[in-house]
Structure formats: C-alpha cells, structure tokens
Design a protein around this nucleic acid. Structure first.
Length: 434
DNA sequence: TCTGGGGTCCTAGGACCC
DNA sequence: TCTGGGGTCCTAGGACCC
C-alpha cells in the first residue's frame, strides 16, 4: 500500500449527453438522453437534468421515454466522443505515462510515475484541480470529477463521492473509515447477484463485510471473489495502473429490431459479423484460435457455442464457416433475438494448419463473398442527433426524421441556437456528416 | 410489446497427460 | 481386480464493468 494519494481517477460527467449539450446549445439545461433509439434500445447516458425523472444508464429506452417524455433522445455521435476523449487522455498522459483508460470517459493515472513531483495531499489536490481546469478549457466546457487516493479503489471511491464536477482526496490513513459506511455495492466486483448473496448473510455495508471470516465469504462467493472482497473491504488494494492491456477477445453482436427466424438470414448476419471481426483482427495484426457464436433467444435467455482450432486465423470466411457450423447445432426455429460472433485465443502469428479440414465442409465461400462484396446502396439514415450540413444554411443536426422528411436545427456551439427547417430526405443540398 | 454492445474474469466439469 | 493426484486445455455459463 502506497503512503501517498498518488492514484488519480478521472470520470467525465454524463459524458455523451454533455458532449451533445456542448455542441447543441438549445439542449443546454434540458434533459438529454443518448442511447439506442430502436424498440429494443437502452440508455447509454442521461444528462443530469434527466436523472431526477428516474432515467439512468442501461435502462430500456421505452422506459426512459415514459419517465421523461420531453427529453431530447439522441442516437450518439461516437466520433465526437472519441475526439473529446482523446483530448482528455492527452491531458492525463502529460502527467504520467501510466494512464489506464477504462473507457472513453474514465481513466486511472499513477502520479507516482512520470516526472518527479510532490506527492503530499495539498500538491496532489492542486495538480488535480489544474487537470479539471485543463479538461474544461480544452474540451470546450466539459466537466469531470476527479478522485485521489492511495489505490485504484480509493481513487474511484473518491471520484464517485466528488460527482458531479468535483474533486476529492481520501487521505492516506483515512481509507478504512471512509468506506466503512458505504454500501457493499461500492466495492468493484459486487453486482446485483453478489449483493443478493451478501444480503442473505446480513451484510449491507463495507464494514459488515469485515465481520465475515474468509471461510464464510468463500462459501458464499467462491475463492477469488472472497479474497477480493476480504481485501477491498479493508481497503487493501495493490492493483497496478496498467497503461497497456493486451486484447483478449474481439466480438461483434447485434440485437434485431424483430426476432429473426430465417436460417439463411441469420447466416448472412453471421457472415457480416465475421467480416467485421476479421477486419479488426487484421487491423490489430492478430490471429484467433477460438471462434464463439453467441445467441439470445426471444425469452432473453442466451447461449454460447465455441470451437477452438489447432492453428490461428484472421480470415472472414473461415471465421464465418466455423460460426455458421456452430449455428447448425442450435434450434433457431423459435426465432433469434441476437446473434454475435467473437474470437479469442489471440496470437500474433498465424499457425499452420490454419484449421481442421472437417470444418471446411460447411464453408460456402461463394455465397459469403457475394454477400460481402455487393456495393449495396443504402438509404441515408438520419438518426436524431446526427450532424448534417446544408448547402446554404450551413451546419446543423437532425432533430427528427420520418416519412421521407428530415427536420434539422441549424446551430453549433459557436453560432448558438438557430432556426429549425424541414427537408425531403433525398434533398441533394443536405449532406450527412460522418 | 420484453434489457445494448464491447469487454474481463471466474467456475466447473470432462478429457487428457504424466 | 477398489477409483490417486495434479496440471492444462476446452467448453459453457455466470457475473460484472463501462
């Protein structure tokens, strides 16, 4: 355990919806919900204005619409989020090479690495305040919360306590008392299922966990979970901040607007997913030994089937053939809600033999090639929130669309709130960006 | 008209090997 | 003529995180 609060955890406040409010001035101060807009979508981020209505992450979108019908519902613009994220991560990497990005909007920094610096509480707080100011200035006004502590766990607890737009340091020595009264759910790794089990043992707070013996914890949670919980409840956490993490798996999955029942249609999806997976393998210079087919059924239950090859591949056709073969062992008669293709067992070299001959029997290269090589013309998709530019009226964003029409609000962060106009979806003057 | 998508780690049983 | 005991790999499922 280090003796300075030199682990920093930075968490952007309501990241996606904040980027939307930054770029769409008319949405500032209003409830904004970013997520999947289809019938089966879920909420990615709800702005702080939407949260009092009971809207939160991972909530089904239809429920969010019911709870907060007047919010702006947006599909999300990942290029914009990526840009803002890059700016934030660059600020952090200026502090130390040891930056572990957990997602676009969250990262740990080990401030004990990097250039020599004072690590007393006051100096660290000053440094963190400067980071928050830099983030705000360089991202055009996005806010974040920062926590400082003697471990990842403490830094994360601190940033959680600081939210939103705050800063907090858990002083060395104050760790155990700081977490004692928190819900056991505050411990990383304790989700709904574990909480339920702890509940049955009469545990509700972190301090309650300390009353249980390791043996009792092991009986309830298994060896690994028990040890983790035993230590974290006592604020013992020596997990290092890891700047580079090896990719262990790559996957692509899709939930359909309506369940698929046609086997050929499902196989076409498998082939498409396989191509995307293969492209990402190739981009990373990796090859995979295990292919996994994931399905979710209409009742929301799911299953996975996997097959491991003797060698490793990055070929879309081979991945598709194996995934397709795994599908053959499944009864899709009742329909399929989701299909996913994943690879794991990643290596940096293709190994001979590429794969077993018997799995070649289900290979249908002609068909797959045909499906992937067609330069299909797809209609332009004007998703709410998307950036557009009009030949005369300039930049704006999609407010809504349907029935061959698109409604655009012409505004940017620079120009401020502007007019709203409706166009035909095929209006040549209107271009979809990205 | 039923909860996404991309990941990570753990567990447990069976096969197989020494 | 009674079935030990590890270790590793593969598969399937579960839990969790953002």
């Amino acid at each position: 355990m280090r003796n300075a609060a030199s682990v920093m955890h930075l968490d952007m406040d309501a990241f996606f919806s904040s980027v939307e409010q930054r770029d769409k001035p008319s949405l500032r101060g209003k409830p904004v919900i970013v997520g999947g807009l289809g019938a089966r979508g879920v909420v990615s981020t709800a702005s702080y204005e939407a949260r009092p209505f009971g809207v939160g992450s991972a909530m089904p979108m239809h429920e969010a619409r019911r709870k907060c019908p007047n919010a702006a519902f947006l599909a999300g613009r990942f290029t914009a989020y990526r840009q803002a994220s890059d700016q934030v991560m660059a600020i952090l990497r200026d502090l130390s090479p040891a930056v572990e990005a957990m997602s676009l909007d969250e990262a740990y920094v080990d401030l004990a690495q990097g250039p020599p610096r004072e690590l007393d509480d006051e100096s660290l707080l000053e440094l963190a305040q400067r980071v928050r100011r830099d983030v705000f200035d360089q991202t055009g006004g996005l806010t974040c919360s920062v926590g400082l502590g003697t471990s990842k766990f403490m830094a994360k607890v601190a940033s959680e306590l600081a939210k939103p737009d705050g800063l907090r340091l858990v002083a060395p020595g104050a760790e155990e008392e700081t977490i004692a009264g928190l819900s056991a759910r505050a411990i990383p790794g304790v989700g709904p299922a574990t909480m339920e089990r702890l509940d049955r043992l009469g545990v509700s707070t972190v301090a309650d966990i300390r009353q249980l013996s390791k043996a009792e914890l092991t009986r309830a949670l298994g060896k690994a979970g028990a040890e983790m919980l035993h230590d974290l409840a006592r604020a013992q956490d020596d997990r290092p901040v890891e700047a580079v993490r090896e990719t262990k798996s790559i996957s692509v999955e899709d939930t359909f607007e309506q369940d698929l029942v046609d086997v050929d249609e499902i196989k076409a999806v498998v082939a498409r997913h396989s191509s995307l997976v293969a492209a990402r393998l190739a981009k990373a210079g990796l090859f995979a030994r295990t292919v996994t087919l994931k399905t979710r059924w209409p009742d929301l239950s799911g299953s996975t089937r996997s097959r491991t090859l003797h060698g490793a591949t990055d070929s879309a056709e081979q991945i598709a053939a194996i995934a397709s073969g795994l599908l053959d062992g499944l009864d899709v008669g009742g329909g399929v809600r989701l299909v996913g293709v994943g690879v794991s067992g990643l290596t940096q070299i293709a190994q001979e033999p590429l794969f077993d001959l018997d799995s070649l029997s289900s290979l249908k290269p002609n068909k797959i090639v045909e499906e992937n090589s067609g330069t299909q013309r797809r209609p332009r998709l004007f998703l709410p929130g998307a950036d557009v530019v009009h030949a005369e009226l300039g930049p704006g964003w999609v407010w809504g669309s349907g029935l061959g029409r698109v409604t655009v609000r012409f505004e940017t962060a620079a120009t401020g709130p502007g007019p709203v106009r409706t166009f035909a979806a095929d209006d040549p003057d209107l271009a979809l960006l990205d």
